[in-house]
């Protein structure tokens, strides 16, 4: 495992989550194969990985919904196994599928949870109404949840996690299945929550989401953490100089890829459309030489740039596999 970290001291006083060696098996399948995680208080921390990487299982263990087979963890200073009720008092979890009662109205869902937390009568109703207003759901308060759109459900689901301000909020794929507008809404809410001091651990398959929101990112694949750091650190790990070129003629990409591969000596990544190529260049000089070679071959470029790799490229470099984002783009292309 490549571990890059500018932040490392293990100090339980400042850690919202301190997990060591968490393992979970389901029969013969090892969902989580020994993961350490240290999340300081107040941070947005993203767990990034493809489907089946073990993200959800890891989160369910931290939220006391699944018992680890081995390893230890504390959440807001409470041990996961010996003090599960104290952990539950300090967290809230919004699962991958809206955990709402479809038959009840949005308001009734929130009142139900407020009462379970101990708000009584009028206070439970006031808390529900405050949250409905804050999440732009006041107009739909008296509608059954089954009539809500995906974005409304997700907002209500997050509101349901904020009846009492949690120390740690777990969000399992908070924007999966949402349209771009609803996704931006959820991102805004997550940022606002973090500003108010809530520690947020979110899982995502979307590299852009981790990049946009999280101060630190752990990349998980096949039950193991394969990298961790800030977005910038992860990008730096795959090499500084990335060269991106866009071809005027997509049919020449094989020739262009051959030229780049010869000049740079690394594997060339091709975009979904096939008109764009990118590759790691060891240095700016190498990148310049590669560009010159392309032009010398008469391959016309519409655009080129040098800079840091995207997280897609980082994921590719770390796992040797395309991320789901890239797969989806390829499918829709």
């Amino acid at each position: 495992m490549s571990h890059i970290s500018s932040f490392s001291p293990r100090n339980s006083g400042t850690a919202a989550i301190d997990a060591r060696g968490l393992v979970k098996h389901f029969g013969d399948v090892t969902a989580v194969a020994g993961i350490d995680l240290l999340v300081p208080k107040g941070m947005i921390f993203a767990i990034l990985g493809p489907n089946g990487a073990g993200k959800t299982t890891l989160m369910r263990m931290l939220a006391t919904l699944a018992r680890p087979d081995s390893g230890t963890a504390s959440v807001m200073g409470h041990d996961l196994v010996s003090e599960p009720d104290a952990v539950r008092g300090a967290i809230a979890m919004t699962g991958q599928f809206a955990s709402l009662d479809e038959d009840l109205t949005g308001r009734e869902n929130l009142i139900l949870l407020a009462r379970l937390w101990g708000f009584k009568g009028r206070h439970a109703r006031e808390r529900a109404d405050d949250l409905l207003a804050a999440f732009d759901l006041a107009a739909a308060a008296a509608k059954q949840v089954k009539a809500y759109s995906g974005g409304m459900r997700r907002r209500l689901d997050i509101a349901a996690s904020l009846i009492v301000t949690p120390g740690v909020l777990f969000l399992d794929e908070p924007t999966t299945g949402l349209d771009p507008t609803a996704r931006k809404d959820v991102w805004r809410m997550i940022r606002e929550l973090a500003l108010s001091g809530v520690t947020i651990l979110l899982t995502t398959q979307y590299l852009e989401e981790a990049d946009q929101l999280a101060a630190r990112i752990a990349v998980i694949d096949k039950g193991r953490k394969i990298a961790e750091g800030t977005s910038r650190e992860l990008k730096a790990q795959t090499g500084s100089g990335f060269v991106h070129v866009s071809l005027a003629d997509a049919s020449r990409r094989a020739a262009a890829a051959a030229v780049l591969e010869k000049e740079l000596g690394v594997e060339i990544q091709q975009s979904a459309e096939g008109a764009e190529l990118s590759a790691m260049a060891g240095s700016a000089e190498a990148a310049n030489r590669a560009l010159a070679a392309l032009i010398a071959q008469g391959i016309e470029l519409t655009d080129f740039s040098m800079g840091q790799p995207s997280l897609d490229e980082v994921f590719f470099a770390l796992t040797g596999e395309k991320s789901r984002d890239a797969e989806e783009e390829r499918m829709s292309a």
């Binding site: 008092g89 937390w117 101990g118 708000f119 009584k120 206070h123 808390r127 405050d130 949250l131 207003a133 804050a134 904020l162 009846i163 009492v164 301000t165 606002e192 929550l193 108010s196 001091g197």
Partner: peptide, 8 residues
């Protein structure tokens, strides 16, 4: 509304 609400 997102300001800290304590547990009853």
């Amino acid at each position: 509304v997102l300001k800290t609400v304590a547990r009853p």
